[in-house]
Design a protein around this nucleic acid. Structure first.
Length: 652
RNA sequence: CGGGGCGUAGCACAGCCUGGUAGUGCGCUCGGUUUGGGACCGAGAGGUCGGAGGUUCGAAUCCUCUCGCCCCGACCA
């Protein structure tokens, strides 16, 4: 991995000067590929205008950065507020955002980093259509599974279409048509594409949206060992991508959810704006999404088994707490909590609603992802597929158990599937509802009195419980998912018939992996993690510009002249510089620069210039220092390079 | 989908309860004075009050419907 990284660096540094005299030398990454493509067109079509256009495009007076003084009322999370205030994005509709030029520059730079790291592990870039025919999704079974989260439409002939939420089906379709032999494998294909999801509730600015950019990669291998290698290569590439983007992240064990498959890792960035909870151990490397996390809990001494269950009246008792405080009640960890769910299952065109009881210790809370997995396993046994799992309505509960929530239990229950949480194994002298309003049972022994259809881990781990791997105390924190890698296995290749002949001449389904990154989430996460009261503090690798050049008084001729000079020299040195040539007061320029978060600023003021000095300002530390005006280029280059080194160092 | 909140000038908001000439700050335009952390003075431009219907002599204001946005929950590769 270190070797690959050095190769990459060498490639970057060996990039020559282009024809406009802009050099990408000195190892400074400029996201040059997109820009040079643009330039090539301009060069041919309008050579005379090119110079004018290029000079003006990096001048704030003509560049579009509509910063806001006041915070828009609709914004809640910090990244959303700052993206709006910094003039980077504007909202078009719920969950739909326009990226203005500075945001687009950042997004392109993030995409460029992703491309470099994908190519470095041998992944090949595709460009697929966002518009997909329904048939493909029907083949994989996800047409039904995705439900209302998928944007659907009909073409003029009435054929059903959808907007892609992800591209397993399309990639698998290409694979099945073209791949014939194990000799063609492995293949790793990726794209950076717009995805559409009709989210029930878009929110938090760019964090949960209905249209976004995703890098999605798919690997095709002939055997499990190959998949393991592909998976590992992606995992390492992801580490480099997020590091180069300046993000601190945690790799966590994750639930595979509707994607199916076995191993699954999420790349998480800790932030309160995130919607996931990560359980981590400070003593070892254990980290898992709450949906997957486990913990060891202390055994509880239940005393000697009593022979008889005893029903007793509990007027008005509705909650676990009520029963704790009720005379003759029980502590929460000696109660059995009974929750009723409806599993919606399908088999072909048949559908059925199956009631399901989840039993947990009174002081534990149910984790619906775990419950859903357990329910799916049960339902699958009979050849059905779990479509949905929902909490039962109060009327349904009463019809089923003859009592209202607050007095429910599973003792003697025959009809519904009963799933019992692992921590209830062997427990006795427990208290639970009697399925008769205002009555409970005590003296319940789980093994003796309850008939489980399955045992399962169903509960949420809580702060402070013991790590499953060591004796550390677990920590729970909010986090944002920026990447997710799966070992899919053969779910799609079997469903859609993608197979090759192996070395023994036997037809075998290809083994797949899929690997996703939310591009704009990287941008938003970087802002969540890097900001202060003045604004954004961009990591240099993804900043819209590396440097802002700020003459503090445009009326002063000497200031103006030096600024022009420095501007040209910086550009010639390959620095991405924005020239704040606006005729604004110093305060406005300084505040705007801090708000948008350019990593470095060169400030030219009339007084210091008389002594031959300019100021070099570091946005992250908010420290500035005087430097000789004629050393400004040298200093800037050194600081920019040092900033990149700092980001890259973790993987050398 | 359930609960809550909000739609009035580019932005942030007041006015609504108690119906009668649509306002404040910032931003914008012009003139002048200023010029190192979001200047000051003066003069201006800018609003179908989200939309439709109703009540009324008269509706931003009251009533009904509707659309949109935000937040909480449900949901979420």
């Amino acid at each position: 991995m270190a070797g690959q990284w050095k190769d990459l660096q060498a490639r970057l540094s060996s990039r020559g000067s282009d024809k406009n005299g802009q050099s990408s030398g000195a190892g400074i990454e400029t996201g040059a590929s997109d820009r040079s493509a643009l330039r090539a067109v301009t060069d041919r079509s309008c050579p005379k205008n090119r110079k004018v256009r290029e000079l003006e495009i990096m001048r704030w007076s003509s560049y579009f950065i509509p910063t806001l003084r006041e915070v828009p009322a609709d914004a809640e999370v910090i990244s959303h507020k700052l993206l709006l205030r910094a003039g980077m994005v504007r909202q078009l509709s719920a969950g739909l955002y326009s990226y203005l030029p500075t945001a687009q520059r950042s997004v392109l730079r993030i995409a460029a980093i992703i491309r470099e790291e994908m190519e470095a592990v041998g992944a090949q870039e595709f460009f697929l259509t966002a518009l997909n025919p329904a048939e493909l999704w029907q083949e994989s079974g996800r047409w039904a599974l995705m439900g209302p989260n998928m944007f659907r439409l009909k073409d003029r002939k009435g054929a059903e279409m959808c907007l892609g939420m992800t591209h397993e089906e399309v990639m698998t379709d290409i694979a099945r048509r073209e791949l014939r032999s194990y000799k063609q494998l492995p293949q790793v294909w990726y794209q950076i594409q717009t995805k559409f999801r009709d989210e029930a509730r878009p929110k938090s600015g760019l964090l949960r949206v209905r249209q976004f950019t995703m890098k999605d990669a798919y690997s095709f291998d002939v055997d499990q060992a190959g998949l393991d290698q592909s998976f590992e290569a992606q995992r390492k590439a992801y580490c480099r991508i997020f590091s180069r983007c300046g993000l601190d992240f945690e790799i966590v064990d994750a639930d595979s959810g509707a994607m199916g498959g076995s191993a699954s890792n999420e790349f998480m960035v800790y932030t309160d704006a995130g919607e996931d909870l990560v359980v981590s151990c400070p003593k070892c490397h254990y980290a898992a999404n709450l949906e997957k996390a486990t913990a060891r809990i202390a055994p509880i001494d239940d005393g000697a088994e009593v022979a008889q269950i005893e029903k007793f009246p509990t007027p008005g008792v509705r909650t676990i707490d009520d029963l704790v405080n009720f005379p003759g009640g029980a502590s929460a960890d000696r109660q059995i909590k009974t929750l009723v769910f409806i599993a919606v299952a399908a088999k072909g065109n048949d559908a059925q609603n199956r009631p399901l009881l989840a039993l947990l210790r009174g002081d534990h809370s149910v984790n619906e992802a775990k419950l859903s997995n357990a329910a799916a396993r049960l339902v699958n046994k009979d050849g059905w597929e779990l479509v949905n799992l929902r909490a039962a309505h109060p009327e349904e509960i009463h019809d089923l158990l003859g009592a209202h929530p607050g007095s429910l239990g599973a003792v003697g229950v025959k009809g519904p599937l009963v799933i019992v949480e692992e921590s209830l194994r062997g427990r006795q002298n427990m208290t639970t509802g009697a399925n008769e309003d205002d009555h409970h049972l005590r003296g319940v022994a789980v093994d003796r009195d309850i008939e489980p259809a399955a045992w399962a881990d169903l509960r949420n781990v809580v702060e402070g419980e013991t790590c499953p791997k060591c004796d550390g105390a677990l920590h729970v924190a909010k986090a944002l998912e920026v990447g997710h890698i799966f070992k899919l296995g053969t779910k799609y290749s079997v469903a859609m018939g993608a197979s090759v002949l192996n070395a023994d001449g036997k037809e075998t389904p290809v083994i797949m992996g899929c690997y996703g990154i939310g591009v704009e989430r990287i941008l938003a996460a970087a802002i969540e993690r890097n900001h202060d009261e003045a604004g954004i503090i961009f990591p240099i690798s993804i900043a819209p510009f590396q440097v802002i050049l700020s003459p503090l008084n445009m009326k002063d001729e000497e200031v103006r002249n030096l600024a022009e000079q420095l501007y040209n020299s910086l550009r010639a040195s390959g620095i991405e510089v924005l020239f704040d040539d606006r005729d604004e007061r110093a305060g406005v320029k300084l505040n705007d620069a801090d708000l948008v978060g350019f990593p470095f600023q060169i400030r030219i003021g009339p007084k210091k210039l008389k002594e031959g000095l300019v100021e070099f300002y570091d946005r992250a530390t908010r420290q500035s220092g005087d430097i000789a005006a004629d050393s400004a280029i040298e200093v800037t280059l050194a600081r920019v390079q040092a900033a990149y080194r700092q980001l890259n160092e973790r993987f050398v």
